[in-house]
Design a protein around this nucleic acid. Structure first.
Length: 722
DNA sequence: CAGTGATGTGTTTTT
DNA sequence: CACATCACTG
């Protein structure tokens, strides 16, 4: 018998109620993952359910991976056969088999949002529709929203409703975009879900295959599902009816991406005889933190209503600090981290959370000054770098010749003397004949002079070479062929700059990841590899040991830290300007709740009296969320600086930053050696006593005037003294 | 066709 | 302020 004694009564009920629909309303830190994983283990070990008939869906690859690992620990190797996947990868995998049923080739390409924006940009400029309202970004969100709503309403009607005044243009863009992707045998993220739904709706055989196969369906973060995901879940569970969803309406923060909070609020109406289980005991934080969290969330309008409580009654109250500006705020954060670490916390225990990525810059600057190792999540991802996207574009064209968007990206990279005008002629020619650009190149003489058509022959030759040389090769080898035969490596070598060198390193890292991928998935095809690249983000990388974590509040969901700094608690920052303007503050409120409940032990809430937003400085009022927490629950570290009376001399703790942004000449971490004399921007001169570790983890013990310190060589602002 | 400098523009969150 | 796009020159 499986031992479930470590679970609470309600948790155990959630694990062992295996039949019929179950809705688990799981507050933050209430042991939801434990319930989910133990339930799967229970199904297999106690109920004799075959692993292959279990489908568990998450929202991030990281969550999926962690769930698999934990289930493996509980059940052993059998976990390999369970389908544990994100909505998007699940659909991508299904569609590799089923895409032909709705008229796609099974080797379809997945375009990420950057690719889609490129497509839209081209459509807008072709149709001469570019304007302030019709920007690629805005079109993208309208189209995405229309597709997400599509399980309820026809996209045309949706656009009509939403784009009052310019809906005709918008519809034209929508159709052109849809046709383009179809012609390129490509799908965007939304299409993955939507097309899978269509397959299930239109092909009864496929539908019964999947609905028979999956006897138990589990969905994590159900509050984040949109209408298409809702419909998918509904269909996939229709045969056996064992649908188990876990979520927290208070943590619904993706409405802007089409998530519909009604999905969780109405679950009981949608599924007859639902067992509802509430997990309200929090095992993560102490009561002082939960008090603050409850104070903030209790003002949200629409809730199922839950109150988190913890058995841990005592702990430090959340600390509030008001800085004069964002530099002082960052300085405060860095100083506190430095102090906490000296008191025994480790860097990995600490996280700094902000509303938007741009806030990380100042923080990074200060953390570097203090020699604090950190890791920033999100922002520009590895796979979004130009050189990586270029390499991926070559592979995409290799796999799917219809992928014009990918082709256009690299037709003249490296430079082959093919300019805009030639490309324009090529596009027209291809358009008229309904052929792909790469095929149209063969007929260059028909639409362009002999000089320019020679350039195209050169390009044709490049692709031919790549194809010939990569014939029968493995993924990693194919990638190397592309890097060399495309002339990309040569181009970078010729630039002979440090930037070019990093680009080469990045591409080599990509090649490495291809080798790793094929080792881990021996059956995998090029299309699979490309799909994994477009669906895996930096968010999925595991935390580096020994670093402070910097990330947005959105990406912090599902994580926990001993100490959390929630910075930028100001009106117009958090809640964001836009959410205030559009009357969508409730979602920000939930986001704040998510942020607060990440902290296990120590929580800091900081804000600035003034902040440089775009140009010039803005005086910002403290966030309404701060006001919502009764003062007695907080530990106010500095009196809030007066906002209105700016002329008054600034009282209290005005920070004197010890070092103002000195551009730092930082030595390469490999060049340090024991015995060297070095200079630190903050601690002054010192001597290296010893060095251990490798790469970014290389740590040196250094004797400074005020004592001995250990620091990461790759992070510390150190200079070698000659 | 490519590379340079000037002008303008627009800002959240992400699978 | 950072970034993209545009116009101009080589």
């Amino acid at each position: 018998m499986m031992n479930l004694d470590f679970l609470s009564d309600v948790q155990r009920k959630a694990v062992t109620t295996t039949k019929g629909p179950v809705l688990v309303l799981a507050g933050a830190g209430s042991g939801k993952t434990s319930v989910l994983t133990n339930r799967v283990a229970y199904l297999i070990k106690e109920k004799g359910v075959s692993p292959a008939s279990i489908l568990a869906i998450t929202f991030t690859n990281k969550a999926a991976r962690e769930m698999r690992e934990r289930i493996e620990k509980l059940t052993g190797a059998a976990a390999g056969d369970i389908m544990i996947s994100t909505f998007h990868s699940m659909c991508a995998r299904f569609l590799r088999y089923d895409a032909d049923k709705i008229g796609y080739d099974r080797n379809f390409t997945i375009y990420d949002s950057a690719d889609c924006k490129t497509v839209l940009k081209r459509i807008l400029s072709d149709k001469q529709l570019e304007s302030n309202i019709l920007t690629p970004g805005r079109c993208m969100s309208v189209i995405s929203a229309a597709k997400n709503a599509c399980a309820k309403e026809a996209p045309e009607n949706y656009i009509e409703d939403v784009c009052e005044g310019y809906s005709e243009d918008m519809k034209a863009v929508y159709h052109a975009y849809t046709e383009r992707l179809r012609a390129e045998n490509a799908m965007d993220f939304d299409d993955l879900l939507l097309n899978m739904l269509r397959v299930l709706e239109e092909d009864p055989k496929t539908r019964s295959y999947y609905t028979n196969k999956y006897e138990y369906v589990l969905v994590d973060e159900y509050q984040d599902t949109n209408s298409v995901q809702y419909a998918l879940v509904k269909i996939l569970s229709e045969k056996h009816g064992n649908i188990f969803v876990v979520g927290d309406d208070d943590q619904s923060i993706y409405a802007w991406r089409g998530a519909d909070i009604r999905n969780i609020l109405d679950f009981e109406k949608d599924y007859q005889d639902t067992t509802v289980i509430k997990l309200e005991q929090n095992y993560r934080s102490h009561e002082r933190i939960l008090d603050a969290a409850n104070a903030v969330i209790s003002k949200a309008r629409e809730r199922k209503g839950k109150t988190l409580w913890s058995a841990r009654k005592e702990g430090p109250k959340p600390r509030v600090y008001t800085a004069p500006n964002e530099y002082a705020e960052a300085e405060f954060v860095a100083k506190e981290i430095d102090r906490l670490v000296r008191e025994g916390k480790s860097y990995a225990d600490i996280s700094v959370l902000y509303r938007m990525h741009t806030q990380s810059r100042v923080l990074e600057e200060k953390l570097r000054t203090y020699g604090i190792p950190y890791q920033v999540y999100g922002g520009q991802s590895f796979y979004e770098r130009k050189e990586i996207k270029d390499m991926v574009a070559y592979l995409t064209v290799l796999e799917n010749e219809q992928a014009d968007t990918a082709f256009l990206r690299i037709v003249n990279t490296p430079k082959r003397g093919i300019g805009e005008i030639s490309i324009e002629k090529l596009r027209n020619y291809a358009q008229e004949r309904g052929m792909s650009l790469i095929d149209a190149m063969e007929y260059a003489e028909e639409f362009i002079g002999s000089g320019a058509s020679g350039k195209f022959s050169g390009c044709i030759q490049v692709f031919r070479d790549i194809r010939e040389m990569s014939e029968g090769k493995s993924l990693g080898e194919q990638m190397e062929v592309v890097f060399n035969a495309s002339g990309y490596r040569e181009m970078l070598l010729l630039q002979d700059s440090t930037e070019a060198e990093t680009k080469i390193e990045n591409i080599e890292e990509l090649i490495n990841s291809a080798y790793t991928f094929e080792k881990q998935n021996p059956e995998a095809t090029l299309a699979d590899f490309l799909a994994s690249i477009s669906l895996i983000s930096d968010m999925d990388t595991t935390a580096e040991e020994g670093s402070v974590t910097l990330m947005t509040l959105h990406s912090a969901k599902g994580l926990e830290f001993d100490t959390v700094f929630l910075v930028g608690m100001e009106e117009n920052v958090f809640p964001s300007r836009r959410s205030i303007a559009e009357d969508k503050v409730d979602e920000e409120r939930r986001l704040c709740y998510v942020g607060i409940t990440r902290a296990k032990q120590l929580l800091y809430l900081t804000n600035c009296a003034s902040r440089n937003l775009y140009s010039g400085s803005n005086e910002n009022h403290p966030s309404r969320f701060l006001d919502d927490i009764p003062e007695g629950m907080l530990d106010i570290l500095a009196a809030p600086a007066p906002v209105r009376r700016a002329k008054e001399p600034k009282q209290t703790v005005v920070f004197k930053p010890q070092i103002e942004f000195k551009p730092q000449v930082k030595a390469d971490s490999a060049s340090f050696a024991v015995g060297m004399e070095v200079e630190h921007t903050k601690f002054g001169r010192g001597a290296i006593l010893s060095i251990s570790g490798e790469g970014t983890q290389r740590v040196a013990s250094i004797k400074f005037p005020d004592g001995e310190r250990k620091m990461f060589l790759s992070f510390a602002p150190l200079k070698i003294v000659e």
